[in-house]
Nucleic acid binder design. Structure first.
Length: 943
DNA sequence: CAGTGAGCGAGCTTCCGCTTGACTT
């Protein structure tokens, strides 16, 4: 990246001697904010919003300006060969808005860039200045709370653009682009097209996968204990109970093992001084304690105190809305957006827990009115940010305004009401007093018939002053967890008091594997690790769901086997990139850049080109690509078995001794146990029985195959034992008839009649020159066959209807020319190509309309229209196409340099190293079985 | 994961962060 040219100051704050009169254009990020601020600034100010970023790297080929198309780095939008210079374009959905901003600026005397005061906001301001190219003075205005005073103060205390901070943002942007746009194609080649990888989503996926791995590796431990109900036998006051529950904690001084004493492997962490009770031991101990005398050994009282929770920021709001309102992260943000736009709450994408002074006053005032002045502390509470990389551009999420409306006063309803109420309560509670009380631990001892000393404990909690808990109690993810306002009262017992055991029973427990992530807990985990930003938390979940990396089971996020494959590939070959600390290290570096202490280019260069012993990204996705064996990264052994789980282009399956069986897509990986696997092998899945062929008596089934859905007949199954094997071999000569489904059919709806019709193919149409002519369905669709000669049919239906006379006509025409000639009549004739001078025509082809000059062909793009396309545009398309052609050749030339695939199975399907190179030399197949032919071409991980 | 007979103009997918409508079901 070249250094940013110019500075905001250059445009002359010295010219701004005037205060009255004149028009000042203020640009903020959000339209709702613009509306509010306009009210505070009043006359002389026009406030407009940028609606987020206005420029960015090009997203796709269509956004790359023509003059850069031929550049080798155009695909990335970053000139990696020239100081990582980024190529910025105004995004297509922002063009109209940027035009509007320019028009507003034409009437302005001064420009105030009032975007958020964080890394992205500073960058938006810089992009605005670059794109609007103002000739008037430019000022950078910042504020982090939206009150009249704060805004007016901000307008009078402007500063210059912070260019090092802009550099930090740009570096972040470039890194994310290089990571995403270089690693994703690796997944397309090695796992499945359209997959994606990125700094944030790949780590999020990895977290979910690792949790599932822990669950798979988890071995539960069983442990037993005793539960007793003691009677205090005294006259307890009415509000206290006379009995209480206590649990066995030790026997003769040896502590009884409980869940946390066991490892994930189900063994005791330390057996020293521990007693691990099994069922027999627990029951016999209970029997020996039958009728024993018990007494209180000790009573320990401690003050209990609980402070209020900090006001909401994005993640905590998402968590609580999930726990209490059952809203997804996305739903929460949508509802919050509406509340924000209509002026009910402050901005909802924030990492700050800070309240403005006026908000603190409003919360205290409301708390005092609703719960009494004794519930409000003398001094306002201040919440420090818990988030390490917080950028604090906004306040916490709270009710808007200088005095809060109660939920009832808002007139809201439904989810908006409930979310507002949540925010309101949390905000008010945050300025209330601590809850205080007392916690009590009572120890009880008794001696068994064989002289063992058994000790029990019970804990109680009494809240004497509820404080903030009257307003708000935080929810818990674990349904068994005890909420903060829950009391447990014990009878008022004293040391030495005799007790009677009303009940004594053995209780069995077992340790549980770590819980799966929910949307909210995954977002929290990401925030704790400083990965992602408030504006992206909800969409991260959306991305990994869309890619099929995770699916939801209730509220739990379950990783797919596809996610296991992708994560395995990334861990093995891009370990650095999916390291949990990668983002944290990046943030440190960005901070250095923002402080002007480090330059970004050397850092990006190390990342992309490598340095010293470290391999750069470019080499990992380039020369070292062949080292990634797609079959290997998509394979997982099922522990303790010789079964291999594989992820194929058509979903997960298992393989053992050449036998294969599908794994249901919605089966959670930790549920694929050995037993489950055997069950799946026992009943080959995916088949749909359609009925019996009356002609043969054989069952007909429909299933999914390598080339898509097909029907087949089931031959009698030979007995599985070894004695029957020779017999089976002799039968192997009989192959079942098979046939692909027609395009109009689907596995769910196909009938037996459809299937029988398909199985009747190939159909003998008749004879031409004593040679039989058949109609059949093949790799490229329906066709007629006569000896070694063939002709394609136009429709699948023709296989069943074509007559011998029609067949004669078809064979009378030369092979491919016949159909192609008809199809290649020009749709439209254009002028001469600017480069070659040849006349250009628009034709219609397999892939839609294209322009050709006789030599070069180029498809029309999105937005190009056959009727209205100009000669200039057509020439441009042809020029682009010509520019690309040599690149393809070099790719093809590279092929022999790669190591030939060693394994037979991979060689056959052209996997791995040879696979990618092959695409240049192998003829592309066309018409219908594109998925299948692509699979065969660039190497599906399964054979 | 079924198993067959071409020859020809593909182009695209994807990242993370800012922010809202304008679209379709």
């Amino acid at each position: 990246m070249p250094p940013k040219k110019g500075s905001a100051g250059e445009n002359g704050s010295k010219e701004t001697g005037h205060n009255g009169g004149g028009n000042r254009l203020v640009i903020v990020e959000s339209p709702a904010k613009a509306k509010t601020i306009a009210g505070y600034l009043g006359r002389g100010y026009v406030v407009e919003s940028s609606i987020g970023h206005i420029r960015d790297l090009p997203n796709k080929a269509a956004e790359i300006p023509a003059r850069y198309k031929g550049e080798p780095w155009a695909r990335l939008g970053v000139n990696v060969d020239n100081a990582f210079e980024p190529l910025y374009v105004v995004n297509s959905d922002k063009k109209a808005h940027v035009k509007k901003l320019k028009e507003l600026m034409a009437d302005a005397d001064e420009l105030y860039l009032a975007t958020d005061e964080d890394r992205e906001g500073e960058a938006i301001a810089w992009h605005l200045r670059e794109e609007l190219n103002p000739k008037i003075p430019v000022k950078r205005m910042v504020f982090n709370e939206i009150t009249k005073d704060a805004i007016r103060r901000a307008a009078e205390n402007t500063r210059d653009l912070n260019l090092p901070l802009v550099n930090a943002q740009e570096t972040r942007r470039i890194l994310d682009r290089l990571y995403g746009y270089e690693v994703s194609p690796v997944l397309w080649k090695k796992v499945m097209p359209k997959l994606s990888a990125g700094r944030v989503q790949s780590v999020a996926t990895r977290l979910v996968v690792e949790r599932e791995r822990e669950r798979i590796a988890f071995t539960p431990a069983e442990y037993w204990g005793l539960k007793a109900v003691f009677d205090a036998m005294g006259g307890a006051p009415a509000e206290d109970p006379s009995t209480f529950v206590a649990h066995l904690v030790s026997v003769d001084g040896a502590r009884v093992a409980v869940g946390r004493d066991f490892t994930a492997q189900g063994v005791l962490r330390s057996a020293e001084g521990m007693l691990h009770l099994d069922e027999t031991a627990a029951r016999s101990l209970a029997a020996r304690l039958e009728g024993a005398d018990y007494a209180v050994r000790s009573v320990e009282r401690k003050p209990y105190k609980r402070s209020p929770y900090a006001p909401f920021r994005t993640t905590t709001l998402q968590q609580e809305a999930s726990r209490k309102l059952n809203l997804s992260a996305k739903q929460t943000m949508q509802v919050a957006q509406r509340l924000y736009e209509n002026g009910y709450i402050t901005y909802m994408r924030t990492d700050s827990t800070t309240l403005s002074d006026s908000a603190v006053a409003a919360a205290r005032d409301q708390a005092a009115r609703l719960y009494g002045a004794d519930h409000v502390p003398a001094k306002p509470r201040v919440y420090a940010s818990k988030v390490k990389n917080a950028q604090e551009a906004h306040e916490a999420i709270r009710p808007a305004g200088d005095s809060f409306r109660t939920p009832a006063e808002t007139g809201l309803s439904g989810a908006e009401f409930r979310l507002y109420e949540l925010i309101w309560k949390r905000t008010v509670a945050s300025q209330m007093k601590d809850a205080v009380g007392e916690s009590v631990t009572v120890k009880v001892a008794g001696t068994s018939s064989t002289g063992e000393l058994a000790e029990f404990t019970a804990t109680g909690k009494i809240i004497t002053f509820h404080g903030f808990l009257k307003a708000y109690v935080e929810g818990a993810d674990d349904p068994n967890a005890e909420l903060d306002d829950r009391e447990r009262r014990l009878p008022p017992v004293d040391e030495g008091d005799p007790l009677k055991a009303e009940q004594l029973e053995a209780e069995g427990h077992s340790t549980r594997p770590p819980a799966r992530y929910t949307e909210a807990s995954l977002v929290k985990e990401l925030e704790d690790r400083e990965i992602g930003r408030p504006s992206t938390y909800a969409s991260i979940i959306g991305t990994i769901l869309d890619r099929g990396y995770v699916f939801k089971k209730g509220s739990a996020l379950v990783p797919s086997f596809l996610a296991f494959a992708v994560v395995q590939l990334l861990e093995r070959h891009f370990g650095n990139l999916v390291d949990y600390d990668f983002t944290a290290r990046m943030e440190d570096m960005l901070d250095d850049i923002a402080r002007g202490e480090t330059e970004s280019v050397p850092w990006l260069r190390r990342f992309y080109f490598g340095s010293g012993g470290e391999t750069g990204l470019k080499e990992l996705v380039g020369d070292q690509l062949g080292e990634i064996d797609p079959k290997e990264v998509s394979s997982f052994p099922l522990p303790g078995t010789d079964i291999m789980i594989r992820v194929g282009r058509y979903g997960p399956y298992m393989e053992r001794d050449g036998q294969r069986v599908n794994v249901p897509e919605d089966l959670a990986p930790d549920e694929l146990t050995e037993e489950k696997a055997e069950e799946l092998f026992a009943q080959p899945s995916g088949d749909r029985e359609l009925g019996t062929d009356p002609a043969t008596g054989r069952p007909v089934v429909a299933r999914n195959g390598r080339f898509g859905p097909y029907v087949t007949e089931v031959l009698e199954e030979p007995a599985a034992d070894s004695e029957a094997k020779p017999k089976a071999k002799s039968k192997a000569a009989v192959k079942p008839r098979t046939a692909s489904l027609l395009k109009s059919m689907s596995l769910d709806t196909i009938t037996l009649d459809d299937a029988l019709r398909l199985l009747s193919l190939p159909r003998v149409v008749g004879e031409i020159d004593d040679e039989p002519v058949t109609a059949q369905n093949g790799r490229f669709g329906p066709y007629l066959k006569k000896g070694t000669d063939s002709r394609s049919l136009e429709t699948e239906e023709q296989m069943f209807t074509v007559t011998i006379d029609e067949a004669k006509e078809i064979f009378a025409k030369p092979k491919q020319r016949g159909r192609r000639a008809a199809a290649s009549a020009p749709l439209r004739e254009l002028g001469k190509d600017a480069a070659t001078g040849s006349p250009m025509v628009i034709k219609d082809g397999r892939f839609g309309p294209y322009v050709t000059d006789g030599e070069t062909n180029a498809s029309l793009r999105k937005g190009d229209d056959v009727e209205s396309i100009t000669d200039e545009r057509a020439s441009e398309l042809l020029a682009e196409r010509r520019a690309k052609a040599p690149a393809k050749k070099t790719a093809a030339k590279k092929a022999p340099a790669k190591k030939p695939a060693a394994k037979k199975s991979t060689a056959k399907s052209g996997t791995s190293a040879s696979g990618t190179a092959k695409s240049g030399t192998t003829k592309a197949s066309g018409t219908r079985r594109t998925a299948a032919s692509r699979a065969a071409k660039d190497g599906t991980p399964k054979s």
